[in-house]
Structures are given as C-alpha cells and as structure tokens.
C-alpha cells in the first residue's frame, strides 16, 4: 500500500537524500545558523568542516532534530528527508531519528552489556519478533561496525569496559542496528587515538555503500580522506559546498582557502 510514495521517493533518492532550505537556528537570542541551504546525496560521505563554533555541529543536530532536546533552541526553514519536511508538525522525532541515526563526539555506550547496547535500538523500535532475530541483528551490526571479532566472546560484558576506539565502533554499530538511512557523526574520532581513528575512518568508508553518511570533523585531513562532498561552515554561514577534491584543491571562496591553508581556524 506504500508503493506509490515509495516510487516517488526512489526518484528523489537518486538525486538528494536530504535537502535543507534556508535553515536558521537560534539559541535564545543568538543566531547560530544563518540561511543554510544544502543538498546531501545518498551513498555518499558528506563532511562538514569549519572552525570551532561555526555551527557545523548545530546544523548536524538539526538533521535528526536532536536540537529538540534543548529548550532554548529554535529552528526555522525546511529540511526535507526524501521529500518530507522533518520539521512538519506531524512528524514524530522518534520515528525520524530511527531513520537518521547519530554517533556522538564522545563514545557513549550505555552502562549495559555489549549485547544490550546493540539490541537497545531494535528493541525499542520493535524491529524483531523473537530472540533469534535479535541475535542476527546484533551480530550483523557488530560485524558491520567492524568490532565483532573483538567482542564476540564477551557480549554479556558491559560496553563501558571497552577501549575508547572499541566503544566508538560499538556506538556506530549501535546506530546501525536500527537500520537507519542516514548516519550522522559528530566528530566521531576526536576522542580517539590515531590507530582507533584509522579503524573508524575505514569503517565510515565501508558504510557509504549502504547509507548516506554526514560527518562533522575539525580535521581537514580526515575530511579529505573519508568524504566525497565537503561543506565549509564559517560563523554560522555555509560558505562553500562541493566535491571534496575541488574544495581542497581549488576552493572558490577566499575564506575557504584561508581555512584550508591554515590562516583561520
């Protein structure tokens, strides 16, 4: 019975997964995001870069309405996911966030077992009928999170006991377990050592096959390594958006160039 809208969507998806149109964000009186419009493609890693406080994380949090949890935050403009306005009154943020998963700056595993950490999302969203299904999802997610081999023998131990890099991959696996369509990552490697960072970056590249990944990073090298598209934010404005290779080699805006060459930031 959902055939018709699905057809429409597939047409859209080919083009853009998320379309943001004149988005404004206010924190109380502060105008944090000014008039940002951007189109994010499916099966692509899109990187948001920019100096600290430029609004890239804020904008990222708009994409799955995580800003709703902050009382003083107000969002204007339209953000369309598959052609549907996610700020529409009828949209339940809970349903939205199941489609648009998120991974945070600091690894934040729940103080539960590794298994329960992964199973949490599928359970609350009612994705499984029985334990066997759940077992399959957990294993699959952990495998896709590239952490299965490290934890398969201790699924019943607390997730908080893992190392930082493992915790972050666990959190990514946890986000994948709810079968999202878009994965938002807010500086996922900033709390990790170089080796763990490399593992996570590799993982992000693999995830691109199935998801649209949006990653906020303050590391330009990281953006260059993992992303196909890059958006540069500065003082709440989207300064430049385009192919990663183009942004890093041949930026159009002088501000982008200054940032990339290390003059601002």
């Amino acid at each position: 019975m959902y055939d018709a809208p699905n057809l429409e969507k597939t047409v859209d998806q080919k083009e853009f997964k998320i379309t943001a149109d004149n988005v404004q964000v206010f924190y109380g009186d502060t105008h944090a995001i000014k008039d940002v419009s951007v189109q994010i493609e499916d099966n692509t890693v899109t990187a948001f870069i920019g100096p600290s406080g430029c609004g890239k994380s804020t904008f990222l949090r708009c994409l799955n309405r995580m800003n709703d949890t902050i009382d003083i935050c107000r969002v204007e403009g339209n953000i369309l996911l598959d052609g549907e306005n996610i700020y529409d009154k009828k949209v339940d943020p809970v349903q939205l966030r199941a489609k648009v998963g998120m991974v945070f700056q600091k690894p934040n595993p729940f103080p539960k077992s590794i298994y329960d950490n992964i199973a949490y999302g599928p359970r609350i969203h009612g994705l499984t009928r029985n334990k066997a299904d759940l077992d399959i999802i957990v294993e699959k997610s952990l495998r896709r999170g590239a952490i299965w081999d490290e934890v398969k023998d201790r699924l019943d131990q607390p997730g908080t006991g893992l190392s930082g890099g493992q915790q972050q991959r666990l959190c990514i696996a946890r986000a994948i377990a709810t079968e999202p369509e878009v994965l938002l990552m807010d500086e996922p490697c900033s709390a990790l050592d170089p080796i763990a960072t490399a593992q996570v970056e590799e993982l992000i590249d693999e995830l691109r096959q199935d998801y649209s990944v949006v990653i906020v990073t303050h590391s330009m090298q990281q953006a260059a390594r993992v992303s196909q598209k890059t958006a540069f934010f500065h003082l709440g404005n989207l300064v430049e958006y385009g192919e990663t290779s183009q942004i890093f080699t041949n930026p159009i805006d002088p501000r982008t160039e200054s940032y990339i060459t290390g003059r601002i930031g």
């Binding site: 529409d88 349903q95 199941a98």
Partner: peptide
Amino acid sequence: SGAAAPRGPHSSSLLVQDANTRKRN
C-alpha cells in the same frame, strides 16, 4: 523487518505514524 534489507524497516512516510510509534507514544 528481516535483518537483511537495510532499507526495510523505515520505508514508510515520516508524516504518518506507524502502529509501533503510536503504541510507543
């Protein structure tokens, strides 16, 4: 909701609450 199809579970429209979401709400 088979674990196989990555796009499976959430293919419905955001604008319509599914039964599960209604129950959860």
